[in-house]
């Protein structure tokens, strides 16, 4: 089964993300990368926990003064939903339904972009209302680094998925691009996993002090 073979509904395998050796390698390599990313984010979380509320003097705002739960809740809902929509996209990928896959990926991208917009609004709000910036205190540095790394992952994920959608829009699914879509969706879920810990550890635990 060569990667560039023209596929039909009948010949489409059950696990197109692992049908060729290249695909198997990509699949495994990406999971291993996610294992490394786990350590990367754990280090960032650890740094944040060590520097939470560490400010030079009492004029600086602390976590419990800053965060706005409704906004975070909305962002969380957007990202969680985008995780489900990318599951839908992979469902259609397995059924060799290229159009529906593209559609659901498109929705995923929109939700992701919405999340990113909220995050930018949120940062802007902290900077202008509370003078809580990257350089104002160790707490600020740690907060923006952790959430910023996550935000950068979201932005990169969006660019990646859009590139894949545009690049493959004309030619439909084959065994060369199916693993690419699959791996991108894994990445997107991982971003969501990280966010679950961010909203719990940074925002919710920040609120309770």
């Amino acid at each position: 089964m060569h990667a560039d073979e023209k596929m039909t509904y009948e010949t489409w395998p059950a696990a197109p993300e692992k049908a060729t050796l290249e695909a198997k390698n990509k699949f495994l390599g990406f999971w291993l990368f996610l294992g490394g990313e786990t350590v990367l984010f754990a280090s960032l979380f650890a740094t944040y926990l060590a520097l939470k509320d560490k400010v030079p003097n009492s004029e600086h705002y602390l976590a419990k003064d800053l965060f706005d739960l409704p906004l975070v809740f909305m962002a969380t809902m957007l990202l969680l939903t985008s995780s489900l929509t990318s599951v839908y996209a992979m469902y259609h990928m397995k059924n060799f339904d290229f159009k529906k896959m593209q559609l659901w990926l498109g929705i995923t991208v929109l939700l992701g972009a919405g999340f990113l917009g909220l995050e930018i609004y949120e940062f802007n709000h902290y900077v202008h209302e509370y003078h809580h910036t990257f350089t104002s205190s160790a707490f600020g540095s740690a907060f923006y680094t952790l959430t910023g790394f996550h935000g950068a992952h979201v932005a990169f994920g969006l660019a990646w998925i859009i590139t894949l959608m545009v690049r493959n829009s004309g030619r439909g699914l084959d065994l060369y691009n199916a693993p690419k879509f699959y791996v991108a969706s894994l990445y997107w879920h991982f971003i969501d996993v990280v966010w679950v810990f961010i909203f719990t550890v940074v925002y919710l635990m920040g609120m309770v002090g």
């Binding site: 740094t47 520097l51 560490k54 990257f134 350089t135 104002s136 205190s137 160790a138 600020g140 540095s141």
Partner: peptide, 20 residues
């Protein structure tokens, strides 16, 4: 963190701004 502290003005390792 080192790059940010040295080149972009963050305070991870600067005790006077709460860092460690």
């Amino acid at each position: 963190l080192m790059i940010f502290d040295r080149m972009f003005g963050s305070n991870f390792f600067d005790a006077s701004a709460g860092g460690n």
